[in-house]
Amino acid sequence: MSNLERDPVELRCHAEGAGAAIEVLRPRDVPLGGPRAMPVRRTLPQRGRTTIGAWCFADHYGPDDVAETGGMVVPPHPHTGLQTVSWLFQGEIEHRDSTGSHALVRPGAVNLMTAGHGISHSEVSTPATTTLHGVQLWVALPDGSRDVAPFFEHAEVGEASVDDAVVRVFVGTLPGLDDEAAVTVFTPLVAAQIDLPAGGEAWIELDAGFEHGILVDRGPVHLAIAATEDEDLEAMVGGDPLAVAGHTATLERAELGYLPPRHEGVRLRAGAEPVRVVLLGGTPFGEELVMWWNFIGRSHEEVAEFRRQWQAEVIGRDNPDGRFGTVAGYPGDSLPAPELPTVRLKPRS
């Protein structure tokens, strides 16, 4: 997915310190292009938190009536230094990219595209789609891997039962589960869909070296966590976790709960309505990043050069076989980049 904001900000990102309790992040609404503009809810990045592990971008959308919103129509656009992860609850999206990949994104399967040195791709909801509902996620590549050759992966995802929950791990793995998602990552990561019936609850084991985020698609959901040094950990697993003071929160739909490292698990509890969340996690990302539009680099100058190359190669058709290549089979023009800021923006912490 492209960041279609007309005036995207430059962000200099760094690893934040870990706190002790759950931090609640609320989304902002962003129109995803076009005259009818399919709306998405963006929880990463924001001023208070720019990354969770290497996860640096999270858009949550739907359920949207395609007849009203026009669905997803994102023309060919570029990426550098990142991976995109597409995960759907409902609908179908056609993906094309400059490596020659042509695939459909459907519920129950993950599409992961590694931009690396540079890639361009398009995303369009199919004519058969009446309702579109899912998440689009970005992963920042570490400095040693951010210049890899681009590639695309598609993998079917199985499911496991954990207490009352159904868990589908689509990136990485979760402690206590045997299956590992069959896609490539360059830093330790996890992403999973977790579903609970009304009144259900589940204890989800976590890697204590990871920080985590829990994005609510259906809710509310009640959370309780225990740190590795907590004397209440045993009681939290076997007793009532929501009684542990200072380690609980209730998240509403579209909110994201941030869990700092040093937690061995989280208990999820549904109320009167079923719950569906997306769990994200990874080791804290210790590198500074500059994110602007669809590029991730390490400096303002580097990102400006990415933009110049995209405009020259693809929009100006100066060298269509350059860094970003071309998307074969897309019936339209590529997306031009917004104008860069006239002055260098100050880094955000």
Rank of each mutant, 00 (worst) to 15 (best):
Q83Y: 06
G239I: 09
L215F: 08
V9T: 00
I315F: 01
V157Q: 07
A226G: 06
E92Y: 09
A272K: 12
P78A: 12
V303D: 05
D207G: 08
H117L: 13
R42E: 07
Q311L: 00
W55E: 13
P142C: 13
L345A: 00
E255M: 14
P45H: 10
G297I: 02
R42V: 08
A235G: 04
R168Y: 01
T50P: 13
F285H: 15
H212Y: 12
P142F: 11
V244D: 11
L88N: 06
E234L: 10
V40M: 04
D7V: 08
A243M: 13
H79A: 14
A165Y: 01
G257C: 14
T342A: 15
T250S: 10
A272I: 05
D29W: 05
S125Y: 02
G116S: 03
E305N: 05
V277I: 10
G219L: 03
L11I: 01
D318V: 07
A304F: 04
G209K: 10
D164R: 04
I315G: 04
H222N: 10
A58P: 14
L279K: 06
V169D: 03
D164Y: 01
R6G: 10
A304C: 03
A227S: 09
G265A: 08
T228L: 09
V290M: 10
F57A: 12
G158A: 13
F151A: 08
I22N: 01
F170E: 00
R317T: 01
V216A: 07
V327L: 03
G257M: 13
D97W: 09
G265N: 11
E264G: 15
G100K: 05
V24G: 07
T130K: 05
A198Q: 02
V105A: 00
L44M: 12
D97R: 04
A224D: 06
R317W: 09
A128K: 11
P261N: 15
L242D: 11
E301N: 06
R298W: 07
N319T: 07
L256P: 11
L4M: 09
L251R: 06
V40R: 02
I315A: 02
E313Y: 04
P220E: 04
H300R: 10
P188E: 14
E305A: 01
D7T: 11
A226Q: 09
T228R: 13
G271I: 11
I119R: 06
G116E: 02
L340P: 07
R298Q: 00
L340D: 07
R26A: 05
L259M: 15
A37R: 11
A226L: 06
G134P: 01
P8L: 08
A270T: 08
I194A: 03
A115H: 10
A245V: 15
